[in-house]
Nucleic acid binder design. Structure first.
Lengths: 253, 253
DNA sequence: CAGTGGTCTAGACCACCGA
DNA sequence: CGGTGGTCTAGACCACTGA
C-alpha cells in the first residue's frame, strides 16, 4: 500500500530502485558528516522507519556499501563507518613486495612539511583551480622497513581540506596515514588509483635510496579519492626495482 | 519445517549458511563442466527445487558468483556462465596505458608455438610436478597496437590441460586469448595475479621492442587461475617503460 | 503471452554481543 | 536478558525478453 513516504527523499517510482536510493542517501549523510568514521549508524530497523521502506531494502543498500568497504557490519553490535586504522584494513592499499614475495609494510620518517601552491599538474590531479595560487601542503618522507630505506614518498594535499593537519600528527600516526586523515581532518579515503612507471634513478633518487644513478626504479603515482569521487591526495613513491616489485590480484574468489 | 533435503548435499545445520553451500555446489558443477562457459543455468526456481531451498537462498548464492564475474544474470533471459569473449569483459584484465592515459588494447602476432618441459620456476608457478619432464606449451608472441610493437608476450601452458589448443586457433582468436582457452579447451580463467617489475632492457628485449639496451622496461608477470585456485597459465609481458605504464584502481564506488 | 530475473514486503528464527 | 545483525522463507509485483 502507498506507504506514504515521510518526505525522506525516496521515490518508489523513481529511475533507481529503492535500495540504490538508500545507498545514495547514506552516502550523502556520510559526505555531510552526519556519521563520522568509526561511528555507529542507526539500526536497520530505525533506518527502515526513517526512510519508510522495509528492513530488507535497507539491508540491500547497506550491503552495497559494505561490499565497497565503506561500512562495516558487526553481528550483535551494529553497523559502523569503516575506519582505516582498523588492523584488517591497515594496509588495504599496500602492494609492494620484496624478492621473496613478502609484503612490505613500512614505517615512515617525515623529512619536511611545507605549505606551497599547487603546480599545474597537481591542480589537475587534485581537481583544484589552476590559478597558480591554490595552497597545498607538501610532505616529503621516506618509508622504512627493518631500518632500511624502502622508498621515497612525496605527498601533496589540498591545504583547504587538511588545515588541521600537523607535522606532529603525522609523526605520531602509528598506522596508515589515512587513519590520521580521518582522525585529524575527518577525511575518509575510499578509493585509490595508481599509475606504475618504470624509470631510471635520478641523482636525487639514487642518493635517497642509496643506489646507483640510472639503476631501475619503480615510480608509483597514486591519487586518493573520498566520497563522490573527490580527489584528496596525490602521492609519488619511488622504489629500488632490484629489491621490490608491485603486485595485484584481480577477479577474486 | 524439516523441509527434508533431497540428498542434495546441502545441510541446514552445517557450518556454512545455505547460500554459501549453494555457491560451493554451483562452483563444483562449473568445475565439473556440467555448465560450460556461455551456457544458461537452470532457472532460480529450478535450482531452488533441486537444492531444496527457497529462491531467496539461491539468489544469494548466485549473487556472490555474479559479484565475482563467474556468472552473469540477464533479466528476462536467465543466468549464464560468464564468457571472456563478451565485449564488456574483453579487456577486463588489461592495465596498460600510454602517456596520454589511453588504455592499450593490443592485437597479437604469434611467433612460435612449441612443446617443451616445464622449468622449475614454471612448475612452481603452475603447481606442476617438478620432475623435469612435465610437458608444457610455450607461446612466444608480440603485442601490436596501431602497427607498432607494444610488448613481448611469452606464455607457458600446461600441455595436459591445453592439449586441444592449436597455433591456428590462437591466430584466429579475435578477442581475448582467454576466450580461446574457453572455446578450445573449456578452461575458464576467473582470477589473475600480476607482479610488476621495473628492469633494464636486455639485448633481446631491445631488439624486439626496437629500443636501446638498458633502457627502462616494465616486466609484468601474470599467473592466471581457474576454479578452485588452480593455476592454468603463466605469462610474461615486457613493455617499453618510456611509452607505457601500468594502472590499477582499488576500492570502488 | 509466458517465463525470466529484479525488487520488495512481512515476518520468522538464529548467533552474537554486552549489560 | 534485550538488541543487534545474519539467515531464510513465502510470496507479491515489476521489467524485460523472445516467441
Amino acid at each position: 500500500m502507498p506507504q506514504k513516504q515521510h518526505s525522506t527523499g525516496l521515490d518508489v517510482s523513481g529511475p533507481d530502485p529503492l535500495y540504490k536510493q538508500v545507498e545514495q542517501r547514506i552516502l550523502q549523510c556520510l559526505a555531510e558528516g552526519e556519521w563520522k568514521p568509526g561511528e555507529q549508524l542507526p539500526t536497520e530497523n530505525q533506518l527502515a522507519e526513517r526512510f519508510g521502506v522495509a528492513v530488507f531494502t535497507i539491508r540491500a543498500g547497506i550491503g552495497e556499501l559494505v561490499a565497497s568497504n565503506i561500512l562495516v557490519r558487526k553481528q550483535g553490535k551494529g553497523t559502523f563507518v569503516a575506519r582505516h586504522s582498523r588492523l584488517r584494513q591497515r594496509y588495504q592499499f599496500s602492494h609492494i613486495h620484496d624478492k621473496n614475495g613478502r609484503q612490505i609494510l613500512p614505517g615512515r620518517e617525515l623529512l619536511s612539511f611545507v605549505k606551497d601552491v599547487a603546480t599545474p599538474e597537481e591542480s589537475a590531479r587534485l581537481a583544484l583551480p589552476s590559478d597558480g595560487k591554490t595552497p597545498v601542503f607538501r610532505l616529503s618522507m621516506i618509508s622504512i622497513d627493518e631500518e632500511k630505506t624502502v622508498a621515497t614518498l612525496d605527498i601533496t594535499l589540498p591545504a583547504r581540506l587538511f588545515s588541521k593537519l600537523t607535522a606532529s600528527a603525522i609523526r605520531n600516526a602509528q598506522e596508515n596515514l589515512y587513519a590520521a586523515y580521518q582522525d585529524e581532518c575527518g577525511i575518509n579515503v575510499i578509493r585509490i588509483e595508481e599509475h606504475i612507471h618504470a624509470a631510471l634513478a635520478t641523482p636525487a633518487d639514487a642518493k635517497a635510496l642509496k643506489i646507483r644513478n640510472n639503476s631501475p626504479v619503480l615510480r608509483v603515482e597514486r591519487t586518493a579519492y573520498t566520497y563522490r569521487n573527490a580527489p584528496v591526495e596525490f602521492r609519488t613513491r619511488i622504489f629500488d626495482a632490484t629489491k621490490y616489485h608491485y603486485r595485484t590480484i584481480e577477479g577474486s574468489i
